[in-house]
Design a protein around this nucleic acid. Structure first.
Lengths: 219, 219
DNA sequence: ACCTGAACACCGTTCAAGT
DNA sequence: ACCTGAACACCGTTCAAGT
């Protein structure tokens, strides 16, 4: 990641950072379909090719924009209870990602692993370690949490931006199973649905850790 | 390259189902980058525009291919314990999706909600109900499981197909936290990592249900 | 009326020409 | 040596012309 040879200061104030910032602003205003190399170049006022002197390719540029966006995430105090740290970190990341509609789909598809993303990752790992999990469990659990977060963002983007006919249709069809009444249920991708699943994950985690006994793998 | 039985398109034999089947075969052989309207049309031997008389757009076509692919998923017996049903359904779906590399990214991005996808969804909901969960918990939990499954497929595709430098770099950087030794850990996207997280989810679920008391949501 | 192929409005990226 | 704009090899989809 540090092998990016940064040439001398290019004309004026153009740099990977300034390009990513401009692209983020553009995406905030115009949405995901504006995040093409050509439209970003037009917005920052340079030739499309100039972007490729600062980034290896379009994906690398979007990675930078994504990590920049999650830099807005407000991280909880290290001294808060570990459950609180997990809940707030995840909820704030979701909210921040959705506040940047242009790059949110990319964040969902590719967890940002730049400096800001790593900071979030460290917060999650630290909280899980404080919960008393071992190393392997810590990493595995963090992946479960990140997976849930990513999918939640993706679902929120899909249902907000487009139509949710596909989901409502499927949920309706699923009413044939048992007595599940789908009428009064929170919509897929909604904050209510996200919170429900999050509570479920965190409660399960709390039970595991407070039980004192390590549950053995099933099968 | 080794086209066993490429359906020589004869007029009249073209249908949404046959198109989706051909596209699935093409994707199996040539990968995700082959799933464009033009290449699919060339493979089935028709004009690109002919596809649009059977599908509203390219996404709808891929949705059909995705649902066709998950039709291969072997579903467990309804009489198996609910934990077994969940574990096998999720593991088999992941394996089947990855066995179809061309459409796997689409499956990860958009859970198939056609007839086959709904069958899988019904299996999950039924198992969760048998676990003793209420309606809201059942739906929320199913979404958590689907989220984990989707992200796991996406990560496996990303790390297998491309390079995982991004992840290894990030995991290495995270070694600064605590005493987490990342050297001997299963790779992101691997089956071992998937199983670890899956056991974690299922154990949490088992603990919740066998405790007899319903854990209350935090905050 | 139905079908389709040319055309439109884009892509990401290469590369050779210009400075 | 550095920069860049034209060009390449594609996209998904529209639409008018042809049958």
């Amino acid at each position: 990641m540090t092998d990016q040879r940064k040439p001398r200061a290019v004309r004026g104030t153009l740099s990977p950072g300034s390009i990513a910032e401009s692209a983020l602003t553009l995406g905030d205003q115009e949405g995901p379909e504006s995040m093409t190399a050509r439209r970003i170049a037009a917005y920052v006022g340079c030739d499309p090719m100039t972007l490729y002197r600062h980034f290896a390719n379009r994906i690398a540029l979007l990675d930078a924009v994504a990590d920049l966006a999650v830099g807005d995430v407000l991280l909880p105090d290290d001294r808060a209870p570990w459950v609180t740290r997990l809940r707030e970190t995840l909820a704030n990341t979701r909210r921040t990602a959705l506040a940047h509609p242009g790059i949110a789909p990319h964040i969902a598809a590719r967890p940002p692993l730049g400096p800001h993303g790593q900071q979030i990752g460290r917060m999650l790992l630290g909280a899980l370690q404080d919960a008393g999990l071992g190393d392997e469990e810590t990493v595995a659990t963090s992946q479960v949490l990140i997976a849930y977060l990513s999918s939640s963002i993706a679902m929120a983007v899909a249902t907000h931006g487009q139509r949710d006919d596909r989901w409502t249709e499927a949920v309706r069809a699923l009413r044939t199973i048992g007595q599940v009444s789908t009428e009064s249920m929170p919509a897929v991708g909604s904050i209510e649905q996200f919170t429900l699943g999050l509570d479920l994950l965190l409660n399960g985690l709390q039970l595991r850790t407070t039980t004192g006994s390590q549950a053995q793998g099933g099968r």
